[in-house]
């Protein structure tokens, strides 16, 4: 029964990693850059929703919507101001800039909200479910998280496979020049990608802090890094890969914590990543397409 409990918890935290990993992987796939500030956008989303609930005394739905709107705008601004001017320069310059943006967001959060940890109040009002005489506990947060991420994944899959913009994003991700020759505006496509990724980060921030209520300016860092790992694990650039990688990472992490050791869980998770990359360098679902001549 304990194992089942770990699996369910793992599925829940893994779903959050998956939502964050989607942001990393989409931006990487389309803009060919690692947006290390992505984790901090999560933190901003959490703070915004916190403020709307606590200071403005508005309901959670309004808080979530506010977080989504602010993060979307923030993501587009970061891309336009920090990354776009560097397009076409070395990828190292972009990477360093992303790290700089990450610190900028953390420090800005410190200035605005202070360094002291805030206690986030969950947006979920649902009662926990006790099964098997209380041996299995499923919290409302777990249920909401799993359902939300399932909805997000279905929507995103439909978006990329069915809509004109979604297909254009896949085209840009596969071959930027050829996409331009189709009349696709690459800059706009990249901006849309950042908007979607940042909106997802806002949702992830709300879910993350609802599940573990400690909110501080560095809240986004560790989940950000784990989600980045998940994206690489699943095959960076691949949307189903990010989903699978996130969920697997969460499940492995919880199983390690429960069955082996809490302290070693990160080491084991990253160890698994190394093994996967040794065996399959493109990640679980990363594709290597052979070109025909």
């Amino acid at each position: 029964m304990a194992v089942l409990q770990y699996l369910i918890n793992g599925l829940s935290i893994g779903s959050i990693y998956a939502i964050i990993a989607l942001g990393y992987t989409m931006v990487y796939g389309i803009a060919k850059m690692l947006n290390f500030a992505h984790g901090d956008v999560i933190m901003v989303g959490a703070y915004i929703s916190y403020c709307v609930m606590i200071y403005l005394k508005m309901p959670p739905v309004a808080a979530i919507l506010a977080a989504i709107v602010v993060c979307t705008v923030l993501g587009v601004l970061i891309e336009a101001l920090a990354y776009r001017p560097l397009r076409g320069t070395s990828s190292l310059a972009v990477l360093i800039t992303a790290i700089g943006v990450s610190y900028f967001l953390q420090n800005a959060a410190q200035l605005i909200w202070g360094v002291a940890q805030k206690t986030y109040s969950s947006v979920v009002a649902m009662e926990s479910i006790h099964l098997f005489d209380g041996k299995l506990l499923i919290t409302g947060e777990v249920i909401v998280t799993i359902i939300t991420s399932a909805v997000v994944m279905v929507c995103l899959t439909l978006f990329t496979s069915k809509t004109r913009m979604g297909k254009a994003m896949r085209a840009v991700s596969e071959d930027r020049d050829a996409a331009q020759l189709m009349g696709i505006n690459v800059n706009r496509t990249i901006a849309v990608t950042f908007a979607i990724g940042s909106a997802l980060a806002a949702i992830a921030g709300v879910l993350l802090c609802s599940a573990s209520p400690a909110l501080k300016p560095t809240t986004g860092s560790m989940p950000g890094i784990r989600a980045f790992t998940a994206a690489v694990f699943g095959g960076i650039g691949s949307i189903p890969g990010a989903m699978l990688g996130g969920i697997l990472l969460g499940v492995i992490e919880e199983l390690c914590k429960g069955l082996i050791s809490t302290q070693f869980s990160d080491a084991i998770v990253f160890g698994v990543l190394i093994v996967v990359l040794l065996v399959k360098p493109t990640g679980l679902m990363g594709k290597q397409v052979q070109e025909k001549v």
Partner: peptide, 29 residues
């Protein structure tokens, strides 16, 4: 990306079709 709207199409060297997309999706693009 603006030139296609002027009526200028370029079929690049090495075809550069979108290999991971279906034939139909390539035509959609």
């Amino acid at each position: 990306y603006k030139l296609l709207r002027h009526g200028l199409a370029h079929v690049p060297e090495g075809r550069r079709i979108f290999l991971q997309m279906s034939v139909q999706e390539n035509l959609d693009m």
